[in-house]
Nucleic acid binder design. Structure first.
Lengths: 221, 221
DNA sequence: ATTTATTTTTAGCTTTGCCTAAAAAGTTAT
DNA sequence: ATAACTTTTTAGGCAAAGCTAAAAATAAAT
């Protein structure tokens, strides 16, 4: 069907498309995939040939319906495997990413369906990201960033936007994970860094960090 | 580490090395892998370069210690995944092969170890083949072929040597699986085909078939 | 509105792994 | 032992996916 490389491009385009509504640029893909821009251009032409993207020279790409469907199928597999690794194989949620990156390319519709069933059809993966269903529908998470919480309020962690190992390990060090409860003690106005109470301890988080932590309000109490 | 293609060659060499004690020939590999002989030659040179095989032009290859270790690691993964698919994900044992062929190339020592643990460290896969441990040691199965059983004796199925879909489906049709009990009713002397009693029914099996079914004697009764 | 800087594309090269066709080595048969 | 056959290797190509360096297009700045 599609090569692993093609699938990686589709996934990357999908993710980059979420933020900017514009076409996804060659350079952003180049960065995301750690591949030289020249190689990206080449691949975009190939993907356009296969009707997976709309590609306009010098103006980036958009996924077509076909490409989007494929991207969602890969993301579905990635997140199901991450769930499996954490929930059944004792992986920590900060060490599943690279393995899931390999597993997501396994081709077997039955495997995906049975895995989903085996895991009791989860809606979210261990990072709190929604898992698309077999038709590509995302369970919509009304996501709020920690950076949007006001001083004195409490919240509960529901996801993380940065899958880099260093960020995840930073979180682990402070015992911040899914469903961890936080209280915003104080916000520095000059850099928007936050003083947080978590596990009875104070932690200082930069704006970069709080932008990448998704939470739900915790009105109770 | 190694490419998927390299791993497939190592596995194939390992399997072919079992029967013939001679070096494994280019043509047998060509057949086993459905690849042209010229391509095989090329790959053998590459594997020799990496010290995975001893290669003598025109006289085939042997695995080195390093190559054998690697082959066993792949076989271990293949068989563990097959066990997982059958025992946890409701796959039939005649439909796991192709998927396992993909999964065996996933690189993650932790994944293999955890999977093994999760499955309670099985000794045999769903086809009855032994699963090497982390050090490459095979739980030795004192295997006997159905073709070696005498008229009137009973036996119990412990494995199958041919993973082709058609053979496995043939077995499934007659409800012959792991731990199925058989009785040898009669042996045709001219072609060594056997009349077998299985599930209260008579089935005629060719010598080719009985050579590929591993059994244990069933003295009890 | 040109010049300057940045981004993107083209052109040409590399590696992996496969292919076909032809040459060379090994094997078998007379 | 030489001829005939089979197997293996060499030679030369091709596609995927990456790279560098140079050219072209777009965007920014004076």
């Amino acid at each position: 069907m599609f090569t692993q490389s093609e699938e990686n491009y589709l996934k990357a385009i999908f993710h980059l498309q979420e933020e900017a509504e514009k076409g996804v640029s060659t350079s952003s893909l180049s960065e995301e995939l750690s591949t030289k821009a020249a190689s990206v251009t080449e691949m975009l032409k190939r993907l356009a040939e296969k009707n997976l993207v709309d590609y306009q020279k010098y103006y980036g790409v958009h996924l077509t319906a076909k490409g989007k469907k494929q991207a969602l199928a890969i993301i579905r597999k990635h997140r199901l495997w991450e769930s499996f690794l954490v929930e059944r194989l004792n992986f920590n949620w900060d060490e599943v990413h690279e393995v899931a990156e390999q597993l997501e390319h396994i081709k077997s519709p039955k495997l995906v369906e049975e895995l989903d069933k085996f895991l009791a059809r989860p809606d979210y993966d261990p990072h709190g990201d929604p898992i698309p269903d077999a038709d590509g529908n995302m369970p919509k998470a009304p996501k709020k960033r920690l950076s949007q919480i006001k001083e004195g309020e409490k919240a509960i962690c529901k996801g993380f936007n940065d899958n880099s190992s260093s960020f995840l390990q930073f979180l682990a060090k402070h015992k911040i994970g899914l469903d961890t409860k936080l209280k915003v003690l104080q916000i520095e106005s000059f850099d928007e860094s936050m003083n947080i109470l978590v596990n009875q301890k104070e932690v200082l988080l930069s704006k970069t960090a709080t932008d990448n932590i998704y939470v739900e309000d915790l009105k109770t109490t």
